[in-house]
Design a protein around this nucleic acid. Sequence first.
RNA 1: GCCGAGAUCGCAUAGCCCGGUAUUGCGGUGGAUUCGAAAUCCACUGUCCCCUGGACGCGGGAGUUCGAAUCUCCCUCUCGGCGCCA
Length: 426
Amino acid sequence: MLDMNTFRENADLIRADHDKRGLAHDSIDEVLRLDKEWKDALHEQSEARRQRNVAAKAIAEAKKSGDQQEVDRIMSQVKDLGTLVDSLDEKANALLQQRDELRMRIPNILHPDVPVGEDEGGNTQHSLHGNKPEFDFDPRTHNELIEMNKWVELERAAKIAGSRFYFLKGDLARLELAMQNYAVDFLCKRGFTFVQPPVMMNRTAYEGVTDLGDFETVMYGVEPDKLYMIATSEHPLTAMYMDEVIEPSLLPIKMVGLSPCFRREVGAHGLSDRGIWRVHQFTKVEQIIISHPDESWQLHEELLQNCIDMWNELGLHHEVVNICTGDMGTVAARKYDIEAWLPGAEAFKEVVSCSNCTDYQANRLRMRYRTADGNAAVHTLNSTAVATSRALVAIMEQNQLDDGRVRVPDVLVPYMGKDVLSPAPF
RNA sequence: GCCGAGAUCGCAUAGCCCGGUAUUGCGGUGGAUUCGAAAUCCACUGUCCCCUGGACGCGGGAGUUCGAAUCUCCCUCUCGGCGCCA
C-alpha cells in the first residue's frame, strides 16, 4: 500500500507509474476524492466532539461547585450532541474504509530501471550463467526421469489428496532434504539467521503482505479457524514485525526461512505443468530482509548475487531476467527472476523470484523504524533461494545420464553420501 | 477444553474498586555545565489536523453515560493452574 502522503503530495508520480503499467488513473483520482471527503467529515466530527467536550467539562465544573441547576441546564442543552457525534463518526469511518480498500489495490511505484513492457514478453535478460549442458543422447524430461526411477507418486497422491499433490520417494526425497540443508547452510554463512515460521496465518496479517486477489486464487483457507496456509515463508517472515517500531540498530534483519508452501494454482492447466513443476505443495528456502529504506536497493542486489552464487555452486545453467512493468504484480517495485535451463523442455523456466517491495508491505503492516523526527516505514525484500521441487527438476534434467540416472551436484554430495541417485525400490 | 489473573506512549510502570480525559522511570532528542567526556541539571519526547488552537489515543469491537483507561457484554492475545496430547 502506498503512503497516503504520496497521493496527497505526489499524485503525478503515481499517475506516471500507472502509464508505464498501462493502467487507467481512475482509482487514483477516486482515492484522492474519498480522502478529501473523509477529511471534511473528520473536521465536521471533530467540531462536534469539541462542543461535546466543552459541555462535559462544564458539567464537571458545575457539579464540583454544587450548582445542580446549572448541571441540569447544560445537560438538557447537549443531550443530542452524542448522537450527532456517532453519526458523523460512522460517516467518516465509511469513507476511510472505502478509501483504503481502493488504496490497497493500487500497485507499488516501480524502480525507474524496470523495463517497460506489456506482458512477460517484455522481460529482458539481465545476465547468463554457466554453460548449456551437452548430451550425446536425447535428454529426457523430468516427467520421464521420475517415472523411470520411481521417485514420485502422482496418482496415489491424487487418490488421497487430489491432483498436483505427490509423494516424493527414495533418493529424490533425500536430495530434497540435502538441498534444504545446503541452502540454509549457505545463507547462514552469509549472515542470515535461520527462522522456521508458522505455516498458517490470519487474514489481517495476510492482507499486509499479498495482493488481495491471491485470497481467491493462491491461498488455501482453513475453516473453521479462519486461517490461511502460507504460499511462501516470505509471508509470515515479512509480517513477523507487524505493528512494531523496530530499533534502527537491528536493521537490516536478514532471515533465511524454510517452510512448506501451499498454492491452489487456480486456472493452471496444460502439458507444461505436468510432473512436479507446478504443484500444490512444495518446500522452499527463502531469503528475507527487513531494511532501512536507504539500503534496500543495495540489499536487493545482494539477494540476487546470493542466488547466482548458489545456483553456480550447484553447477546449474541459468539466466537472470528483469521483470518488466506489465509482468510485475502489485507488491514489488523491482523484480528479478532466475530461470534455469531445462534440457528436456528445451527452455529456461522460472526457479527464483527476487523482489524489493520497498515500503509497500511495511505500510500495510505498520512496520516502522525509529528516527529522530518520528517513525518511518521500513523496506521489505524477499528472494527465493531454492524452491526444492523446481530445483530438483533442474538438477534431474541438467545432470541426467544416458541410462536415466542422475548425477548429484558436487556441493550436495557431502549431504547425500553418494554421487549418483539410485532408483526407488517401489 | 475448563478455572483464574492480566494487556496502558519505543520499553517498563501508576491510574481502574469509587467515571470528569494518562503518572513516573528508562531510553531518545535538544540545551546548560566542561578543554573534552562522564556525572549532574533543564526542556522536549504517541498520532493527526483547517496548528495562538483542536481532535484522537489506554489490546480489538459493541453498549451504558452529558462524559469511559475506569462500568457492562463479546472477541483476540499473554501469564498461572487443571485437563488432553506428539
